[in-house]
Each structure stands twice: as C-alpha cells, then as structure tokens.
C-alpha cells in the first residue's frame, strides 16, 4: 500500500512531469537537457532560499525576510569587494555569518517574546531592505575577477549541455538539507516542533535552541542564495529579489510542505521550485503569453495545493474520531 504521507510529494512530482511533457510535446526545442539545466541555472538562488524556508515552515513558522536578506547580501558583497577592495575570501564568509546572525536574532525574538514570526520577519524584511539603501541607492556592478570567473564558469556535461557553479552549490545545499532534515536530531526536532510545540517541550526536546537555529539556518540559506545571486547578476542592488519571499513560500507549499507545519520535504521544495521554473519556461516558449501569467498560474497552484492540504488534514481528523 502507498504510504499516505508521500501523496503530496508524488502529486507535485507528477505535476512537474506532466508540465515538462506537455512543454516538450508542444514546443520544439523544449525537450532537451539544456532546458532542464537552465531551470537549475536560473533558479539556483531560489532553490537555496526555499530549502531554508522549508525548515522554517516545517517548524510551524514563516520567514518573510529572505528576499531582503538576499538583496542585502548582494549589496554588502558588492560594496566591500568593489568599493573597499576587500578580498572575496573574506567577504563571502562574512556575509554568510551576517545572514545567520540576522536569522538568529529574529528567531530569538520570536521565541523568547512570543511575537508572531510573521511580524518579526516582516520587521527583518524592512530592516534588511533599508540597510541596502544606506549602503547605496544605485546598482553596484561587480568587476572583481573571482566573481566574474565564477559567473562565467560553465561545467560541461555530456550532450553539449552545461551547468554553472551556482547549480553545484544549490544541489549540494539540497543534498545537505535532506541529510539534515532526516538524519540529524536537529532536523527531527524541527519536525517535532511543527507537529506540536507543546509536546516537544514536554518530551524534553531543546525547543528554544532548535527554533532559533532554524531561523539562523534560514538566514544562512538566504545569505548563501545572495552570494549565488551575486554570481548570477554580478551586481549588488537594493531592489534585487523583490517579492522573492512569495515565490519561495509558493515553492515550498507546492512542494508538499504543510503551511501549518510538521510535514514537508526538502526534495519536494526542490521540485516546487522547478515547477515554477517550468511555468516560466513554457510561458517564454509560448511567446504570446506574457510573464504575468506566471504569477497568476502560481497563485492558482497555491490555491489548489492549499485547498488540497486542507482536505487532507480534514480527512485525517475525521479518521481519528
């Protein structure tokens, strides 16, 4: 018998397969390895952000600050490297620590002062965006050798296709996060907190530490996504990654993670990001369809998936009684 807990993720995977098949059937040139790899190249930063968000949502929280933290990371990196001449070897670790610290502080406020995660991370979102503009209002273009080198490196794969270093980073993050989620105590504690925070507390689990670490991890992922985004765009700008928090949440939900917490898969999130990518690719192949259809379709998918989750959880309740 099929395990019920895999239903959402299978639906998601089926959706991706159907969409990719439909695209391949309809458009010439769609069915190629490179189209698939381009999905990864263009969405590497989103994958990394969404992985961090998956942990937050699994633990029953939400993090609205991710897009702003990405922007801040690009801005700090660009400014330090270009305007102050710092070495990337110092700057990159520095921004990663900065992102993690930012998350830690938000997590601590959420946990200790019992303020809704939504509002605390909203403040974080304002703050990070605002800090970008304190650094500079304008785009800072990056010409640093290391950054351009990484940006231009293409890793050749069989069949005349290639991927970027960003993709390698993103895939490594996904693999690491799957391990973290399923094979470490930290990961399992996150699921436990999402299932029932009070139970987790009564079972003697380190709730405070785990919750704060989860936000720290999300902050770290956003910062790493910011680094990847810097490689991708070769610039720092306060308007980078506007509204990315919504794309991220959408990817996580479409990936089968319950917004109420407790259930979710990093692998599902990965597929969720790819689905968004396929929608964009199809729309660009279609030519006559405009980019805003992406938002409408994602909104629609979000609606369907949330409704689907709702029905699943309702059935679970009725089964119990």
């Amino acid at each position: 018998m099929l395990n019920r807990k895999y239903v959402p993720i299978l639906v998601t995977f089926g959706l991706l397969a159907v969409m990719f098949a439909a695209g391949s059937f309809r458009y010439t040139g769609f069915f190629s390895a490179q189209v698939l790899f381009n999905l990864l190249i263009d969405n590497a930063f989103l994958i990394i952000t969404a992985v961090g968000m998956t942990f937050v949502i699994v633990a029953g929280g939400i993090d609205l600050s991710v897009g702003s933290v990405i922007a801040l990371t690009t801005m700090v990196s660009a400014s330090l490297v270009e305007q102050h001449g710092w070495s990337p070897a110092v700057v990159i670790p520095l921004v990663l620590v900065m992102g993690a610290t930012f998350g830690t502080i938000m997590g601590a406020i959420i946990h200790y002062f019992k303020i809704q995660p939504f509002i605390v991370t909203l403040a974080g979102m304002f703050l990070a965006r605002g800090l970008c503009y304190i650094i500079s209002i304008d785009t800072i273009t990056i010409t640093n050798g290391f950054f351009t080198k990484v940006a231009q490196t293409k890793i050749a794969l069989p069949g005349d296709s290639f991927i970027s270093i960003n993709v390698v980073i993103a895939l490594a993050v996904v693999a690491g996060a799957i391990y973290l989620a399923h094979y470490t105590r930290f990961g399992r504690n996150a699921y436990a907190i999402g299932g029932s925070e009070q139970s987790a507390l009564l079972m003697g689990l380190p709730v405070a530490r785990t919750k704060i670490l989860i936000y720290a991890f999300s902050g770290f992922c956003s910062a790493l996504a910011g680094v990847v985004f810097t490689f991708y765009m070769l610039s720092g700008y306060g308007l980078h990654a506007m509204g990315l928090e919504l794309d991220t949440i959408a990817a996580v939900v479409i990936g089968g993670t319950l917004l109420t917490g407790g259930v979710g898969y990093v692998a599902g999130t990965f597929i969720g990001v790819l689905i968004q990518g396929v929608i964009q690719t199809i729309i660009s192949f279609e030519g006559t369809l405009s980019s805003w259809w992406t938002k409408i379709v994602i909104g629609l998918l979000l609606f369907v998936f949330i409704l689907f989750q709702r029905l699943l959880s309702e059935r679970r309740v009725s089964l119990k009684t």
Binding site: F113, I115, A123, C132
Partner: peptide, 23 residues
Amino acid sequence: PPEITLVVKAFVVLAVCLIQSEA
C-alpha cells in the same frame, strides 16, 4: 534617500510589537 524609511519602520514595528508582547 526615501528608502531609509524602511529601516525606521522596521524598528517601529519591532518596538510596538515588543510593547504589546506580554512575554
């Protein structure tokens, strides 16, 4: 730069919520 308002807003949100927070 008008975008700096965001920083101020961030602290206002936080301050108001902290004051409202019983914890």
